[in-house]
Nucleic acid binder design. Sequence first.
DNA 1: CGCCAGGTTAGAG
DNA 2: CTCTAACATGGC
Length: 292
Amino acid sequence: MDFIIPVPEAFNFSHCVSYLRRSPKELLHVFEGDTLIKVIRASGHSVLFSVRYLTGEGIRVDMITPRKTALVSAVEKYVREWFDLDTDLRPFFEMASKDKLLKPLAAQYYGYRIVGLPDLFESLVWAVIGQQINLGFAHTLKQRFVEHFGERLTIRGATYYLFPEPGVIAQLHPEDLLTLQFSRQKSRYIIGLARAFASGEISREKLQAMEPGERMETLLSIKGIGSWTANYVLMRTFRYPEAFPLGDAGLNTALRRLLKLDRKPTSAEVQRIFQRYRGWEAYATLYFWKSL
DNA sequence: CGCCAGGTTAGAG
DNA sequence: CTCTAACATGGC
């Protein structure tokens, strides 16, 4: 059972996939050659599917198991969000082609899009894990977290993981995560997040229904979620093109190199540069990250 | 050993 | 409101 999702203008599957290949520690999807395989939860099922790119046609999705027609729309919706298929990036590239800093990046990585994180709990936890540590270590922590607490499926001899459920993490004590080398602070934040999701206090659906201002306020009211994390999540989960993780270490490093500074740029300098990307800050950030 | 890494918080001024 | 120490640990 398979179907094809047409892709929009200014879309490059390979560039998006290279992002998904950036860590060998990633357990939440698997590559078999050029085919990408993943499990998601939909309507109470663990749904295993694969995607690959067919030149001139689009993204081909194969339902592996269960092969139920009723689950097709959930998988299609997931893939659309995952690969950012519903954003018209033509205005961004038009703007980037006239910008000294972005032009070479936009040309080299044309069609690269923000790989989404449709699951809000996963998105928040991943952002918290990534706070203040290098990305390699962040991937190590996530790997341990998923291995220890995520649901595991074995199909035809291969193992696939789901991101841990809030209900499972909500029952942990900080010590359980300290053992995995999470800091006490991260442990508290993550368990707190899990409890808020498990109790229903926070959910993607609730935040989705809010006005942008209230959504931002709600995110910032959560312990462990500051401005950087809130913007990261608005970028990857809620797809705000104007989300802007100001202060991001990677963005600072990228700008430092591109501007040939002998120090990291100040927050004021970054803000001044980004004035010209107004409305597209998330994508400008994405391309600066890509330059690393 | 020192400093930085996809920061946030609580407390002081 | 702004500034700062503390938080923990890997990697260079």
